[in-house]
Design a protein around this nucleic acid. Structure first.
Lengths: 252, 252
DNA sequence: AAGTCGATATCGCCA
DNA sequence: TGGCGATGTCGACTT
């Protein structure tokens, strides 16, 4: 059973189950057991998919990879694209059944009510895995890293800038970095880890407006957008509203 | 070879290859062939992952499902979450190699330069699939559907509303629906398929500002946000800037 | 290639 | 649970 041309159809041990072209009855049993046991269930085959919930969709027949996770996630992947063509978020409940002799996998959740239904014409392969992942992702180069960089070296914003608070609350939301310049004027800093468009300029504008209303009307509030770069349109928006830009990247 | 307790280790036909706990050399050969042939490659095993590009990340050992797509997509899925813990977008180039006797899969792309490296301590299963998907997703309930609904029945916005253009260009971007009310005043409509926050109010505000500057200064420009509902803060933002809200949902 | 914005966005944090 | 904003957002469309 080790040759390249073998026609293996089944394998089952403590941690892994595999079936090649299983009949629907065996597939049903295996998927049900996998869901029950908290396994990662992976099915590849020709299927149709329906979704109804926040929106509604229909997907005709095609070969797809379906993944059911023990946390209630369901993914339907085609041979293209990073995003699944259909999915169900974590917290959903998966259920398998036979409909007209075909395997159907349904995943539901409430609030909002959503239903995903996958029906297999053919099953080329079905696997279940007992998966254990003890490691956490360590990511650098985020907006939080940019903030730390500025707090450690406030002069990167400008000579004499003094940070007073992070996530300072305003009527418009929490300001990334709140401080004052060398002349005692209030400074609102909005951080972006990458090149920004008009939305970020609008966000900074809302914060500055809110703080200006909050302080006495004659106070000068400066708004500084800190990002690697800005688009033309965002730059004009900043200029129009008296906001400033400082080019800076997150450390990595 | 059909019993549940069989110990199959290999299967290979025209459209599918499967190996259970393959040795690294066989795994290398299979992954390389799969990439070369434009197959969907699926690996489950204990691995470590490194990423460097727009940001940088490290992920320690754990059981994960790795998917390589023929369009250059790479996905690393843990047993939790809808999103992959690491990934590479479509257009990347996958490459397999042996490093210190272990299978390593690397995926790279340029512009921006990004590199994803996956190294397997153990491989529990390795499959390649010849996948064909002829169907397109048909989705309803999007913002485009909401726009169609309004164009067919403009009175949903208000009595006497007349749409004149969609995606009308302004200095601030394209307005969803541009029209006028029963008194001939310009109306800017911004559509959202779901409950909106401050960002959408800011977006509408930018469009109205731009059109007011574009038209003669004394022209009255109304801004209407159309969505199922608004948050408190967004509602206050609309009110403060003289913008209006109409509750409406996309059809499904 | 870059800009802009939608998305069944998802995710994490915090009230 | 809802609000809010970040994301290695992705993806589609336009310039």
């Amino acid at each position: 059973m080790t040759g390249d041309d073998d026609r293996a159809t089944s394998c089952d041990d403590d941690r892994t189950t595999i079936h090649v072209e299983p009949d629907p009855r065996l597939a049903l049993e295996t998927v049900r057991s996998g869901i029950e046991d908290g396994a990662l269930v992976v099915v590849f085959g020709r299927c149709r998919v329906e979704y109804e919930g926040r929106a509604a969709s229909e997907l005709g027949p095609g070969d797809r990879l379906v993944v059911l996770k023990p946390d209630g996630t369901a993914l339907v992947h085609t041979d293209e694209g990073q995003q699944p063509v259909n999915w169900q978020p974590p917290g959903s409940s998966h259920e398998a059944s036979l409909v007209e002799g075909e395997l159907r996998i349904e995943s539901r959740r409430e609030s909002p009510t959503e239903r995903l239904s996958i029906r297999f014409e053919t099953i080329r392969q079905l696997s279940t895995f007992d998966a254990a992942d003890g490691s956490e992702l360590a990511l650098v180069g985020t907006e939080a890293d940019l903030r730390e960089r500025i707090l450690e070296e406030p002069g990167l914003i400008e000579e004499g800038f003094r940070p007073l608070a992070t996530e300072r609350d305003t009527a418009a939301g929490a300001v990334d970095v709140y401080g004052e310049d060398d002349r005692g004027r209030t400074v609102i800093v909005e951080l972006k880890r990458r090149r920004v468009g008009p939305d970020a300029a609008g966000q900074l504008r809302r914060y500055v407006d809110a703080v200006e209303r909050e302080l006495h009307a004659d106070a000068t509030v400066r708004g500084i957008l800190v990002a690697p770069s800005v688009t033309d349109r965002a730059g004009r928006l900043l200029e129009r509203h008296g906001l400033e830009f400082v080019a800076l990247e997150p450390t990595m």
